[in-house]
Design a protein around this nucleic acid. Structure first.
Length: 307
DNA sequence: AACGCTATCAACCGCTCAAAC
DNA sequence: GGTTTGAGCGGTTGATAGCGT
């Protein structure tokens, strides 16, 4: 579906269009011939190759100039976006693992919709991808519960129901003696944001390797190791199962879909927390314990699940 | 098979900010 | 100090794959 629309550009883009040096025959505006046909829409393989090749040879930056020099009829903005969100070699694709989902929830609670900030803590994932995940998955379920995604109720549901459930899933997965192929291929996510150090918990930023060991209800232990400076999180089951990974395995769209954390019995669990006949959802009266308000962390979730 | 609906995600838009001039 | 330019951000849109009827 290639199309060459006239480009509804910002002023800045219009300046670039006039300076790019495309042949006059390519100009579209009737009078001044200062704008060229700019491609919009999906990128072709040829365009990808042009962009990637040019960046490999000359590096990134100065995107408008780069677009011209590479012979791309795209705005610099478009080139930048394509590179950052898709072509960059370290971009990871595929579904978010439970670890990643947990991290997104934690970081969103901490920083809100600062997607680029969140993405910085999740190497290989783009702000766009994280934003899409939040809007399509998380917001969808907030809508189903008839509450605002930023409301205290929804946060409590996330904290007391969904996040522990994710932790359970991680723990259950790590306790499996022989991980399935799907799990084995799921990269264990580099956890670059470790909760602040507290007494009695060996998880903090400073050491080369820091470890949190917790136990699932089944009695198997789970170790979280954060290696610095590589920031790689290693989940180690008590049996010695070790699923570390760098996470480039799930390229393309053909990878097995990981479960949505809200699927199946999860929705039923939430449904039980709701009052059927009410216009709005009645949430359980959560025991908030010490960490009231929003001052909590992944560490809290992990610790709550030790028992 | 055809159609409609929904979910997903790549791409775009409008805006802000900072650096350079 | 004002303007221009490049870069980046969050929000939104549109194409399409997948699913149910």
């Amino acid at each position: 579906m290639d199309h060459f629309d006239s480009f509804g550009s910002t002023g800045m883009d219009a300046v670039w269009m006039g300076s790019c040096g495309w042949p006059a025959a390519a100009a579209t505006t009737g009078g001044e011939q200062e704008a060229v046909d700019l491609r919009r829409g999906p990128w072709t393989m040829e365009e990808d190759a042009l962009l990637a090749g040019h960046i490999a040879a000359h590096g990134e930056g100065r995107w408008n100039e780069l677009a011209c020099a590479a012979g791309l009829r795209r705005t610099g903005k478009s080139c930048r976006l394509r590179w950052l969100n898709y072509l960059r070699p370290d971009v990871r694709r595929g579904d978010f693992t439970p670890q990643e989902q947990l991290l997104i929830l934690e970081l969103h609670f901490r920083w809100g919709s600062r997607w680029s900030r969140i993405a910085r803590e999740m190497p290989g994932r783009t702000d766009n991808e994280i934003k899409n995940y939040w809007r399509t998955r998380v917001q969808k379920h907030a809508k189903q519960l008839k509450c605002d995604v930023d409301s205290r109720q929804f946060r409590d549901v996330m904290r007391h129901l969904w996040m522990p459930r994710l932790v359970e899933r991680i723990q259950a997965a790590t306790a499996m003696p022989a991980p399935s192929l799907e799990h084995a291929a799921s990269p264990v996510y580099p956890l670059s944001v470790a909760p602040a150090c507290r007494g009695g918990v060996g998880m903090c930023h400073s050491p080369e390797t820091s470890t949190v060991t917790t136990s699932s209800t089944a009695g198997s232990s789970v170790s979280l190791e954060v290696h610095f400076p590589s920031n790689q999180l290693v989940l180690t089951a008590g049996s010695g199962t070790n699923w570390s990974g760098s996470g480039s395995e799930q390229c393309g769209s053909g990878s097995a879909r990981s479960e949505d954390m809200f699927d199946g019995s999860w929705s039923e669990l939430l449904a039980r927390a709701c009052d059927d006949g009410a216009d709005s959802v009645v949430f359980p009266d959560f025991e908030l314990g010490e960490s009231r308000d929003d001052k909590w962390s992944l560490e809290d979730i992990w610790l709550q699940h030790q028992y």
